[in-house]
Design a protein around this nucleic acid. Structure first.
Length: 276
DNA sequence: ATACGCCCCTGGTGGC
DNA sequence: TGCCACCAGGGGCGTA
């Protein structure tokens, strides 16, 4: 599920619902996620009030009233859902009950994580400190991106997945952004002209904004805390569309269709005619 | 410092 | 129907 637009969507859903809520009880499944929970995690959260939410890259930060923040990462298959009654999923690993209702983290593959950190030093946390700029902030400009890409001889696709360069892009949105920027995924990141870097910067921002407006992407999973679906998957131009005509082509026979290649072990989708 | 393979884990899908 | 290989939106770690 979770690249930047999905995490943003989940975070907004949690914020609209749980800001100001008082945590009454925490229940853990006992099975660890990617890393063990912090010491006495459940006890430290019980009784706390939830003050606010923010997002950094693919992380959600939930600020509490005692100077601590809970760090959420959804991994590959993590979902955050409003729980009704005693709903038991075999993959419900974290259950938060509050005076505004109950919420659960469901994560079959357990690549997600939860951690606790001091709010004042959130950004110094070892998981957050290395993150690159937020692509939707004004400070994320073409010159800034050019500076980051200049040092990287690797292929664009792989380099853009590095969270230290830009925080929040994943496999879907890199393919979609490169299509939009008309850049070939195998191009050396350091080879872009200033005009191409400008195209790429705009493409990344536009792609992410559109996806957030669509409520993110729902492939196999629900995205929203209320159980509704994002619909950006219907707007994919290349992702998962191998062999189908490229959406920018005027008609049949214009291009050989969307191709799939594997880079650094992960699928990349692109149109070989449009992207150079 | 960087780049790559491998690992973590479960579930869905399609071929035989 | 069963079995199996392969694939999946994440990242970390060890090794060159």
């Amino acid at each position: 599920m979770p690249e930047l637009p999905e995490v943003e969507t989940v975070m907004r859903g949690m914020a609209a619902w749980l800001e100001g809520a008082r945590i009454t009880r925490i229940t853990l499944s006992g099975v660890p996620l990617r890393r063990p929970y912090p010491e006495r995690f459940a006890e430290r959260l019980a009784g706390r009030q939830i003050m606010g939410f923010r997002r950094r890259g693919k992380y959600i930060l939930m600020r509490l009233d005692d100077g601590m923040s809970v760090i959420w990462h959804l991994g590959m298959s993590g979902r955050v859902l409003r729980l009704e009654g005693d709903s038991l999923s075999p993959h419900l690993h974290f259950r938060l009950e509050s005076d505004k209702g109950a919420l659960g983290l469901i994560d079959p593959r357990r690549f997600g994580l939860l951690d606790l950190t001091e709010t004042a030093r959130e950004m110094d946390h070892p998981l957050l400190a290395p993150l690159g700029p937020e692509p939707l902030e004004k400070s994320f400009t073409a010159p800034a991106l050019a500076g980051a890409l200049a040092k990287r001889p690797g292929p664009l696709k792989t380099v853009l997945l590095d969270q230290r360069l830009i925080a929040g892009l994943g496999n879907i949105y890199v393919s979609e952004s490169l299509f939009r920027a008309r850049l070939h995924p195998a191009r050396a990141a350091s080879s872009l002209s200033p005009a191409e870097t400008t195209r790429l910067t705009r493409a990344i921002k536009a792609t992410l904004r559109e996806a957030i407006a669509a409520g993110g992407t729902s492939l196999r999973d629900l995205v929203h805390t209320d159980g509704t679906l994002g619909y950006f998957q219907h707007r994919f131009r290349v992702y998962g569309r191998e062999g189908r005509p490229c959406s920018a082509c005027p008609g049949p026979g214009c291009c050989p269709g969307v191709q799939r290649v594997v880079q650094a072990g992960r699928s990349t989708f692109f149109c070989p005619r449009r992207q150079r």
